[in-house]
Design a protein around this nucleic acid. Structure first.
Lengths: 223, 223
DNA sequence: ATAATATTTTGACATTTATCAATTAATTAA
DNA sequence: TTAATTAATTGATAAATGTCAAAATATTAT
């Protein structure tokens, strides 16, 4: 089933072919253009998303037009909008950073599977637990680290979790990098500048290369 | 079953008497003294907690000895330590603010119930979804509001969610109030002082009375 | 009760971070 | 390609918040 990636984190791994078919109508693969909104905060919808291809940002639209990017999702990631089994109101916005293909799964189908396959419920709970723990650690970073630490963390996150190499062309603007790191774009730019001057990174527009990962890790821990 | 409170939020409401008995051994009600640790971050344990009586703080022990109090739990609250179905490592510490009585439930018992009662899995997922949404909104508050807004929010949280009246004697120190609001104790004290001078609150030691809730709401939204 | 200890409050000052305006670079549309 | 628009960068300055030390209160143990 093309929407699913074979890996440890895949919450669908415990499902049979038949169960997968029940969950996903192949024709329900939707495409989004860059910058298109996939899920909109405060609206109501009953589907959850499984990313097939592309990258999207998951963010909260705060007061005063300030956005907080919670995470980036890509191929194989499963995400619900915060309304799952809980009123269907979406608690964050998801929008495409690159062209995105994804499956929209109706939430009611999930609970229907619990009875016949209880390890699927466990998988979903595990997924939520992980998300929870991620939010907690992000919360600590954002509140207890100085700006250089937060920028270092953002860069390492992009390298390790999203692009999986030391040199990459980001699909995010400086403003979006700032929204991930909880600071203004001006502050972000200044810190990137510092990292460049210390030969920790090399940047050219949206191309970023991490030259000294050790330093970055050190800064992200002690900043 | 004395450990459970009858209300909407109770995740056990869909269980039969027999299922409840399976889940909870009455003798497994544990008592903790003030300041005792119930769950310790980074240790491994397989139980989840249902609070019967008393108040406890759920917090993350950050770097540099800085704590972030995520929430306060009390009678009827259910909480897992972040290791549920996910390696059993606890991701935060829970410690008693007042004498606490609670039930410790082995996590493996939870999944055993999923097969025979699939709405229980849905309840658990709903609980996790809510927790997730709470963390997201807390994250936004802590990162996007100025100190007065965060203190106002903390006071309203204590009034609305914990003590449920306008005048209450807090079981938290100033340091702990600061840990809830993400600031130093000195900053917290200064802002309480400002609120007093504006006749928004009245304080005497650990006794706090909210005189002007409207202003507090306004500050928490616009701060 | 009294001393010892811990907590809360206050003040002066330093640091971190944001804001605003101006400039430069990059992207998009005609 | 060139103009028009948007994004990125830099500098000067202001605002928010933290640090450190001291004083005042409260709490605990003897």
């Amino acid at each position: 089933m093309s929407c699913f990636v074979e890996n440890e984190a895949n919450i669908f791994k415990s499902l049979s072919e038949k169960e997968l078919h029940f969950l996903i109508d192949k024709k329900q693969q939707i495409k989004y253009n860059v910058r298109e909104t996939i899920i909109k905060q405060n609206t109501s919808s009953t589907f959850v998303i499984c990313m097939r291809d592309g990258l999207a940002k998951v963010f909260i639209e705060g007061e005063k037009g300030k956005n907080l990017i919670v995470k980036i999702i890509g191929r194989g990631d499963f995400i619900s909008g915060g309304g799952l089994f809980n009123g269907n109101v979406q608690h964050f916005t998801i929008s495409a950073l690159t062209p995105v293909t994804c499956c929209l799964i109706d939430a009611s189908k999930l609970s229907n599977l619990f009875a016949e396959n209880n390890s699927f419920a466990v998988e979903l709970l595990r997924n939520h637990t992980k998300q929870n723990n991620y939010l907690l650690s992000k919360m600590v970073s954002l509140t207890q680290k100085y700006m250089p630490g937060r920028v270092a963390e953002t860069l390492l996150y992009l390298k390790d979790e999203i692009y999986r190499k030391s040199q990459f062309t980001i699909d995010l603007s400086r403003q979006e990098l700032a929204d991930m790191s909880n600071m203004t774009k001006e502050s972000l730019v200044r810190i990137l500048q510092q990292f460049k001057e210390s030969n920790i990174i090399k940047t050219q527009g949206s191309n970023i290369e991490i030259l000294d990962e050790g330093s970055l890790i050190h800064i992200s821990k002690n900043g």
